[in-house]
Design a binder for these strands. Structure first.
Lengths: 346, 346
DNA sequence: AAGCAAACTGTGAGCGCTAACAACTTTTCA
DNA sequence: TGAAAAGTTGTTAGCGCTCACAGTTTGCTT
């Protein structure tokens, strides 16, 4: 015997113990084992101990597949992440996953660089087949969230910074007031001509930051000018920095740090000095921000908190708690050397 | 009736169709449906069509849980990622996931910021319970891979840049020759005093880069000096840049771009100009590299290729192909302004 | 001490699927 | 033409678990 199994080097692992193996060893029924495993009441503590010992001895671990088959629960959630490896979203994904691990939930991640509705729908369908109990969407692309929200799922859905939908919980930092703080800081420094380098139009974050900038200017009777709509990348910041009209401007609020870096580089190439000729303020506080030249004044978002909040919000919804407060933190202004007193405008 | 179900707003979704529903509608046995679904031979084409129509009409989708329960296969893989949101690893994770999606595999991601053996073992065990068919490890920490490799799994294991183990496939770029190219570039520019700012000691990548640097210097009869062992972060680069002894040096090869950025910043603070006083070369080519001041000469790694190679290697192993060539690409030197001709040494 | 409730424990069915094999058709070829 | 071979379909038995309920023991009351 076993002659037909010689193709594999390692010896056959002993079959995983089942609930019946445990039951036999402990001298109880499988149902009692199930009670112990699931921590249900009405088990005599002496039998509980006996079962627990058997479990330990056999290294028994319940089969998620069998459990999922009968309960239709899986203790699993699906995470949809679109876009490239930008710092913000990928940090949020990372901390979301870490938080899930801490809570002993499994997460299926569907990463896609594009975000066309078909792919997203496909990902959601795959998740549903896997019996995920909730779905999270971390996407710069607003459209992605709309697609998922439009599918009218019966399981909870949480998204990062999206416009409200029915059945959708939104978590994120207060981009609007973060942006207002940034602009307020510039105004306090004496700036009056404060332009904006915007993020992509389909991003709620980008729109909120722009709105905050616009409103703060409006509140101070200052006029608003957008010098470009970038894609978050340093190269897009650079591109608009090369081309834009700077007359009347002494400061620019860029929608994120990466674009700020590209922008500053372009300004330098044009012979301008930051902050002497132009103050620049970014958003996010990426790790590099403190070490570029000049160190970047920015608005810090705590991606770890955001990721963890997304998870806890989702779990709360899964548990049926639809009333949970949606967490929203206020990003913090980090003052560094890329902003300074306004020079008199040419 | 239905009076006890009014607590939920949306109407009860009609129960997912099972294989029996399809069988009944098509007028065949469930086994025939199974054959059609799994694309097995020996089904008359007319019945196949009939079954396919029933499937479409009922929007039938096989239950992965039931299937996994009986086949012990899951078309699912587990991904362990340790460390923080650095650009390299998180890009690799992203592209690995994207590739898995393209191949219609699901992936469980376990992200952990720490990488203690207990957590990793726990993650692997959770994966095994979920019947993953393979495990990938993306970790700067060499120890992480060792832990997983030491568990003597019966399923394939692939890791990013690790020292070889039995049963372990390793994928990654050729760090060693990438580093040699970087140093060769500096030597060609006339540099003779070329120090290294190393990455963390427990990282295979870091060690390979250091080894490449050292060997290339040795091949040219130049002496090697390490000015610090950082943790990949800009702040660690800055810290060593502030403190280190620069005598006899005209160039520094930093183990990654982020540390380069911190390092350059510190040198500037010390009154030195890059590259006039000191040439700096990094590694990775992060998106910001081209836009910092001065633009960073660096060695580009293609994280997308690496991530996708990891996936295809793992899938090949899962299919039983243990002979596959392990892909290894040569990183490309990107010459920018942070390196220049050597000045004469003080 | 009888009687009943509460606390425990066990039994059987079934979640949705595939594997193994049995049974029935059709084809092939002497 | 008939029997073996090949092709097609159906039947049964689980995979490992939870749920619903039946059965048994224990504790408490009067």
């Amino acid at each position: 015997m076993a002659l037909d199994k010689v193709d594999y080097v390692t010896e056959e692992a002993p079959r995983q113990a089942t609930i019946f193996d445990v039951a036999r060893l402990a001298g109880v029924s499988h149902q009692t084992v199930s009670r112990v495993v699931n921590d249900l009441p009405n088990v005599r503590s002496s039998t509980r101990v006996r079962v627990e010992e058997a479990i330990k001895k056999l290294r028994y671990v319940p089969s998620p597949a069998a459990r999922a088959l009968v309960t239709r629960r899986s203790r699993t959630i699906g995470l949809i992440a679109t876009g490239g490896p930008e710092f913000g979203p990928s940090s949020t994904v990372l901390y979301f996953n870490a938080a899930a691990r801490d809570a002993r939930w499994s997460v299926f991640t569907a990463n896609m660089t594009d975000s066309d509705p078909g792919s997203i729908r496909g990902a959601v369908e795959a998740f549903l087949r896997q019996n995920v109990e909730g779905i999270a969407v971390i996407s710069g692309h607003e459209g992605s969230v709309d697609v998922v929200a439009g599918m009218e799922l019966t399981i909870p859905l949480v998204a990062l910074e999206a416009t409200p939908h029915v059945g959708l919980a939104t978590v994120g930092a207060d981009q609007y007031n973060g942006a207002r703080n940034a602009v307020r800081h510039l105004i306090a420094l004496g700036h009056r001509g404060i332009a904006h380098l915007a993020g992509p139009a389909d991003s709620v974050d980008a729109r909120e930051r722009e709105r905050g900038w616009r409103d703060e200017l409006g509140a101070n009777d200052l006029s608003a000018r957008v010098i470009g709509v970038g894609d978050w990348s340093p190269s897009s910041g650079h591109r608009f920095g090369e081309a834009c009209d700077l007359t009347g401007l002494t400061a620019i609020f860029a929608a994120n740090d990466q674009m700020s870096i590209g922008l500053i580089h372009a300004l330098n190439e044009r012979g301008l000095t930051v902050p002497a000729d132009m103050s620049i303020i970014g958003f996010d506080d990426i790790p590099e921000a403190a070490y570029v030249t000049p160190p970047l004044t920015t608005v810090r978002q705590d991606f770890e908190t955001i990721g963890r909040d997304m998870l806890s919000t989702l779990l709360a919804r899964i548990e049926g708690d639809r009333s949970t407060e949606l967490p929203q933190s206020l990003p913090e202004l980090i003052e560094r050397a890329s902003t300074g007193p306004a020079r008199s405008v040419a």
